[in-house]
Design a protein around this nucleic acid. Structure first.
Lengths: 350, 350
DNA sequence: TAGCTCTACTAGCGCGCTCTAGTAGCGCGC
DNA sequence: GCGCGCTACTAGAGCGCGCTAGTAGAGCTA
């Protein structure tokens, strides 16, 4: 952390933990002006190499660290991007991981705010704005389109993984339809006809996936087998849907396409516990290819989104809006593709 | 988001996105002083109810939101807690979720910083300090004890889920030994004797769990069966360990106790793919009871830590340090307990 | 020597807010 | 009529930094 400093051992202070040193302290220590220290820390020309050296040395000795809040306040641009994500959603976590490198590359700092059950997205977003985010990256926001539009009128906003009709914000997402279409094609090719879809209600991406499922079923002449079961994008949603299917009078479908991986995992959970063999009795396909789908023994067939590119495009879109090189309102879509793993297979004859 | 405002519809501006309004704008709008507006927004006495009303109304009309950075800068106390966590670690995510409510209750705002592969803990911590965190909550930090001590000398630090010898920081964690002991007791009671431990190297909590495993094995007269396989706290670590065991000349143990859930999931993954039946051929037990262990069809036997209390105690500890009612250096330990699920069972005779 | 340029620095305002120390105005009792 | 206390408000100094406009001094010409 701080450079090793024998003169001020860290165990010296059980108590005082004196005021954080400021730039002025460093300047005073060296008998120079604050501005000089500022120059050095911003890596601006105007200081001799020896002076730079001395400034860094003194700063390290005093334990000085630049204060972001003051820095943000003083300079017009804060170079901070606010990122909203859902803590429980592994796909969001993947996105956050992927956002860091590009942000760093373009010189942005990141402030994260998690939407968790006890703290809704509105609060999380207010926190981001309050902390001087110049622009917001929203991972699969569930707030209303109107709210997003209002937000977009206040500052640059990039929405990841959700379609919007007419908000003044950038949108970076995957084509949901080809992905969902591929899922149905794959299942049909395996011999399935009773393919149900556990949807995600109005969650980001869900309406498009539902529509694509319907279209694909019709395309394959399976319009009469269309079966949409209400769900959401959490494990609980998948569990509830699975319980509903098990309790229902109708026969189980031979394949279930879930609106996202978490939902699929919920399905897997309940089906497995109930003794339903996966994929022998029921094939299950998810959506997102979050790291969990591939790594664990879940081994879920799913649709992979190009997370690194998604993240890069989102950060770049925010940057472009901030630099004013482009009006907001762009929509970028990436290809996604089916990843076949162990939870899908041919249906067994009954 | 912003209160609905018919006079300035959000679609009015494709372009200007004019400067964010400040407190001075609100004050000018009403013909009052900035200080008054400040009072109202801080909910301090000294303004009449009617004035408060007018201030809020004007603020809403202008779309004013208080600027945290300036607020933090201006007041001594920032009331911001910095939280370091590992994005991929579901147990950390659980902790973050649990920290929010208590923080809010005590009037703290949270700034999150994720350690991800491309961005190590040092950077993540610097970001937190730079954003004026008054105190730091570190979820299972892997940086050196010395670095943590240095950090603790600069500001209040609470470490979650890791033991430290003599750093001037608070520690909130679970008793690892009784938990690990319970695991071994459970497995022995089921009839296991060849119980291996995939450890977590020097990761937080790992040394204690390893030691507890050893002690428990000795207690049960199984000293000669002690088998410790190096691992770490990621899925990859578990996968590598499992591959190593499968490739080894030695027979597989009948039970494996992993140092955390992710590692256990990695084991599950590789064993399952290799056709090893869980728990018939090998029982697997994890540690943490992250939401993933119970929710998915992973159904992992594991050791539950009391996450809500852990989180509450950590925030309270930070608060106490900040209020100066107590010297840093306290260690709080909570009970943890075995949760038996589907990955552990009696060994089959060979 | 004056005049120029260039490097290496400094003075001081302002970012949006908080907070201390006030003041203006009012009703009150004596 | 005067001081008193109270409510409702204001002036203005800072918080730690960035940044613009400046200056002192060295080196160089002519």
């Amino acid at each position: 952390m701080t450079p090793r400093n024998p003169r001020q051992p860290s165990d010296r202070s059980p108590a005082p933990r004196s005021r954080k040193p400021t730039m002025a302290d460093v300047a005073a220590e060296l008998g120079v002006s604050r501005a000089l220290v500022s120059l050095v820390f911003r890596d601006q020309p105007g200081a001799s190499p020896e002076t730079r050296e001395r400034v860094f040395e003194a700063a390290a000795r005093l334990g000085y660290k630049p204060d972001m809040a003051a820095r943000l306040l003083a300079r017009g641009r804060s170079k901070v991007l606010g990122v909203l994500f859902t803590a429980r959603n592994p796909h969001h976590v993947d996105l956050v991981e992927a956002i860091y490198p590009t942000a760093e590359e373009l010189g942005y700092d990141l402030v994260l705010s998690a939407a968790v059950p006890s703290r809704d997205e509105h609060k999380a977003i207010e926190a981001l704005v309050g902390h001087r985010s110049e622009a917001l990256l929203l991972c699969g926001p569930t707030i209303s389109e109107e709210d997003i539009a209002d937000l977009g009128a206040r500052l640059p906003v990039v929405v990841l993984g959700r379609h919007l009709k007419a908000a003044p914000v950038d949108i970076v997402t995957s084509y949901d339809r080809p992905g969902a279409r591929e899922v149905v094609d794959h299942l049909v090719a395996l011999g399935h006809r009773d393919i149900a879809h556990v949807d995600g209600g109005s969650r980001p991406g869900a309406p498009e996936r539902r529509r694509a499922y319907r279209d694909a079923m019709r395309f394959h002449g399976l319009a009469d087998r269309i079966r949409i079961i209400p769900g959401n994008h959490t494990e609980e949603g998948g569990q509830d849907a699975a319980r509903g299917m098990l309790a229902s009078d109708e026969a189980l479908p031979t394949a279930v396409f879930a609106s996202n991986d978490q939902c699929a995992i919920g399905l897997l959970d309940v089906f497995t516990r109930a003794g339903v063999k996966i994929p022998e009795q029921v094939s299950i396909v998810g959506y997102d290819d979050s790291h969990i789908a591939g790594l664990s023994h879940i081994d879920l067939t799913t649709v992979r989104q190009d997370v690194p590119r998604l993240a890069r495009l989102a950060v770049e879109a925010a940057d472009e809006q901030l630099r004013g090189v482009r009006e907001p309102g762009a929509t970028l879509k990436l290809e996604s593709k089916l990843v076949v793993r162990g939870t899908s297979g041919p249906p067994t004859q009954r």
